[in-house]
Write a protein that binds this DNA or RNA. Structure first.
Lengths: 100, 100
DNA sequence: TTGGTATATCGGGAAAAGTCGATATATCTT
DNA sequence: AAGATATATCGACTTTTCCCGATATACCAA
């Protein structure tokens, strides 16, 4: 758990927004055909549309969030789904309370 | 409480380090003549020495941390003392647990 | 009021992050 | 195998951050 890397990942408006959207997918995204929200999360395309940035930018943002540990990804067919890693958030909360 | 501003403030190795030092001042800094650790914190010069960066850089870093709310400052004579704002850390921990 | 010390601010060069379009890769369909 | 779709990666340009030296400001002491 690299604190610095996590804080860098969180230092961007759009990435913070994405994390919030993924907290309540059914509230922020239309139903998906090929996979369920709960199991694998949301695919890149849906997130990209909502973010209003280019595909390459959003793909990279998701990668940054994943490398930090805050998101997890699952590849299903031609789609990559991202979902929150709630354990990482809990751990971060504790780190701030006790270590930082 | 501007989350983005806080995370940006935390996105630097030296600034994270400073926060840790200020958590246990007596452990990381020599005794001060003009003020007590508990009441006002540590003066810029002490922090600068320990950080090994220039005075201007450290002064700016402390200002960034203060603007984010994580530090508070007190001016006493020609010295400015910085100390942690523990409430801000607690609030941040809660935000991560519940909002982000 | 002059000089000394502590801190803040300013201007700039280097490095990193933001963001894009183009292209590569992976997978599906036919 | 060929074309279509989804995602990842690359190269380039712009903006932000890092960090410095120089200078300004504030306060103190004589």
């Amino acid at each position: 758990m690299d604190q610095l890397e996590i804080f860098k990942a969180l230092s961007n408006k759009t990435r913070l927004q994405i994390l919030q959207w993924l907290k309540e997918p059914e509230k922020h995204f239309p139903a998906q055909e090929h996979a369920s929200f709960d199991e694998v999360g949301i695919c890149v395309g849906q997130i990209q549309q909502k973010a209003g940035l280019t595909q390459s930018t959003v793909s990279e943002y998701l990668s940054i969030l994943q490398k930090s540990g805050l998101l997890e990804s699952t590849r299903l067919g031609q789609w990559t789904y991202y979902r929150r890693n709630e354990e990482a958030f809990a751990a971060l909360s504790n780190i701030i309370k006790s270590e930082i």
